[in-house]
C-alpha cells in the first residue's frame, strides 16, 4: 500500500525540481550565447570536472611563466606573495620570491616614498605604476590585470590557452591586420595588441626540469591563472561533497519521518 501512495508525491517533486532546474539551465546559455561564435578548443586540466584538483607542479611552473613572461606587462594586483603558499611553496621560498622584488613603501620619516625588498604580505608588484603608464608603454592598449581573468572570460582557462596559442602569422588570406596588431584566431575581432608572448620552445628554463614546449608553457600558465582566479576551488569542492552527502542522508531521514507521520492519515492524498 505504501509504495503505491508514494508515487504521485515523488512525481510532483520531480516535476517541481525539473521546473526549477530547467529555469536555471535555460538561462545561462541564453546569457552567454551572445559572446561570439568562435569555438574554443577544450584543454584538459587536472581541475576539470566536478571533482578536479590543481596540480601543484603545474601551478608552480605556471607561476614561473607568469613571473618570467607575463609579469613584464600584466599585473595581478589581487594576489599577495603569501598566496603562493597555496601552490606548494614553503614559507622560505615565498619570502625569497617576495624579497626578489622591490616594493614601494612609505612615506618615511622624511616624508619620502622609498623602495624596500618585498615581504610575504605584499601584493604582487605591478609592472606599471598606473593604467596610463601601462597604456603609454603598450601602444595605447591596456594589458588587463590577470588576477581574475579566468573568471572574466567565457571559456576560462581553455580560452587563455587557446588565445596564447591562437596567433597566426601571416594572417589568413584577405585579412589586413592594423599596424602594431597581431592576428589571433580566438580573440574577439581577431586583432590583438599583445605580441605572441610565448612563441618558442625552451623560451624559459623550468626549475623542475620539465621540457618547456610552447604547449606546456601555455597550459601551465593557464592553470596558474585558473588557480589565481579561484584559489578556493579545492576547498569549495571538498566541502560541497561533504555537505551534499550530509543533506542526502538528512533528506532520507526526513522523508522517512514524513511518511511515518502521514501514514496516520492514510499516507499522501490523491493529488
Amino acid at each position: 500500500m505504501m509504495p503505491v501512495r508514494k508515487l504521485p508525491a515523488l512525481k510532483l517533486k520531480a516535476a517541481a525540481l525539473a521546473a526549477a532546474l530547467s529555469l536555471g539551465l535555460m538561462a545561462a546559455p541564453g546569457a552567454q550565447a551572445a559572446e561570439g561564435n568562435i569555438e574554443i578548443p577544450d584543454t584538459r586540466y587536472s581541475f576539470d570536472g566536478l571533482f578536479g584538483t590543481f596540480d601543484r607542479g603545474e601551478l608552480q611552473r605556471g607561476f614561473q611563466v607568469y613571473k618570467e613572461v607575463c609579469a613584464a606587462c600584466h599585473s595581478m594586483r589581487l594576489l599577495s606573495y603569501r598566496n603562493l603558499r597555496d601552490i606548494g611553496l614553503s614559507a622560505e621560498q615565498v619570502a625569497a620570491v617576495a624579497a626578489s622584488y622591490q616594493i614601494q613603501d612609505g612615506p618615511n620619516d622624511d616624508g619620502e616614498m622609498f623602495e624596500r625588498p618585498g615581504r610575504a604580505s605584499d601584493r604582487f608588484r605591478r609592472p606599471f605604476p598606473n593604467d596610463a603608464a601601462a597604456r603609454a608603454a603598450n601602444n595605447g592598449a591596456l594589458p588587463p590585470d590577470l588576477s581574475v581573468i579566468v573568471k572574466a572570460r567565457v571559456g576560462g582557462a581553455d580560452y587563455i590557452h587557446a588565445l596564447l596559442t591562437g596567433y597566426e602569422d601571416p594572417p589568413p588570406a584577405g585579412v589586413t591586420v592594423m599596424e602594431g596588431m597581431y592576428y589571433n584566431k580566438y580573440f574577439p575581432g581577431h586583432q590583438i595588441g599583445m605580441a605572441p608572448p610565448i612563441n618558442s620552445d625552451g623560451q624559459i628554463q623550468y626549475a623542475d626540469g620539465t621540457r618547456a614546449t610552447v604547449d606546456q608553457m601555455t597550459r601551465d600558465v593557464s592553470a596558474f591563472l585558473a588557480w589565481a582566479a579561484e584559489p578556493e576551488l579545492e576547498t569549495r569542492r571538498a566541502m560541497g561533497v561533504r555537505i551534499i552527502l550530509f543533506l542526502i542522508i538528512l533528506g532520507g531521514l526526513t522523508y522517512a519521518v514524513k511518511r511515518k507521520i502521514w501514514a496516520r492519515v492514510g499516507g499522501d492524498p490523491v493529488t
Binding site: F246, L253, T254, V257, K260, I261, R264
Partner: peptide
C-alpha cells in the same frame, strides 16, 4: 495525541528513533 495514541507502541518507538535521528542531523546541520 498523534503518535502513540493511534498506533501500537513499537511503531511509536520506530518513529521516535527516526525523529531523533533526523532531529540530531538537523541540529548538527
Amino acid at each position: 495525541a498523534h503518535g502513540e495514541g493511534a498506533h501500537g507502541p513499537d511503531q511509536g518507538t520506530k518513529r521516535d528513533f527516526l525523529k531523533l535521528a533526523a532531529g540530531s542531523f538537523a541540529a548538527v546541520g
